[in-house]
Amino acid sequence: MANDSKYAYAVARVRVLENRLLDKGQVDRMLEAQGAREALQVLAETNYASAVGELKDVHRFEDLLAGELERVYREVRRFYPEPRLLEALAAKYDVHNLKVLLKAQGLGREAGGDILYPNVGNIPLAKLEAMFAQEDFRDLPPHLRQAVEEIGAGWSQRPDPQWIDIILDRALYDHLLALADTIPFLKEFFTHQANLVNIKTFIRVKILRQDEDFLKKVLLRGGDIHQSFFTDLYHEPLEVLCDRLALSPYAQVVNEGLAEWQEKGRLTRFEKLADDFLLNFVRSHRHHPFGPQALVGYLLAVENELKLIRIIMVGKLNKLPPEEIRERLRDVYV
């Protein structure tokens, strides 16, 4: 009951916000639009109206997406009663920023090329940059500091950008699952996410024929499919993975994802299906009247929507036909 009144206001507010997400019709109209500018015009009738008005160059549509993400997080942070939940959901942006900065530093170049999220994560980008400038990471939260120190220590022997991803991802998921410990719904969500990441990692490792030791290091600890499941499978052909996961909720993701890989040699379908799986998981819980489900769903939906727009815009700028863009699109939340 205490929880009811804690979430009642926020859930109701999120319900209204959900109304402003793009619906299928609008996405379809973007798809069918003549060109990139026209596709953007569809957005002018939506939540994005003022941002579209200010966008001078279609090619800079990423600014619009970043701006929207920042706006949504800022808005939600203002009214949400459970900061831990937002901290968990925003943590991935800190890690993303860290990765970009670390790689830039390690490879000795500017970080300009990659997308950075200035004010979405829990640590403002400016602060991160200041830390890098002073080479002083004491203000980082402990789990990230440890990871950064580990990377710094290992860099001289092994200057491999992939290593940065691996260590930070592990730190991220360990932290997320610890944060989510008291919020069962969130825990379940992150567990699914970690499982899907692990399955993808496994497939990658197999395809690239990397060694077993590497696999052990790369697998996240957060999922409920145990590491040994993957290491046992390492010496079997990839198809066995499908059989072993046939009874798991991920059967369809794995089957169709692998089928496309065998046909076309890419994993985009797997990624799309994995995203859809998570979205559907959240969607099936979103009507819970009091609890974190609605907000998690909403934020995921926003991120999903941004991905949709990005895919469409990239497709339109490259003059792909609508059908080809549609193949890559994710579901719509609403």
């Binding site: 026209e38 015009q41 002018a44 009738e45 109206a49 003022s50 008005g53």
Partner: peptide, 13 residues
């Protein structure tokens, strides 16, 4: 239709 829609959006704004 598009022109009208964006006009309407301007007024709404």
């Amino acid at each position: 239709l598009h022109r009208l829609e964006s006009r309407l959006n301007e007024i709404k704004y």
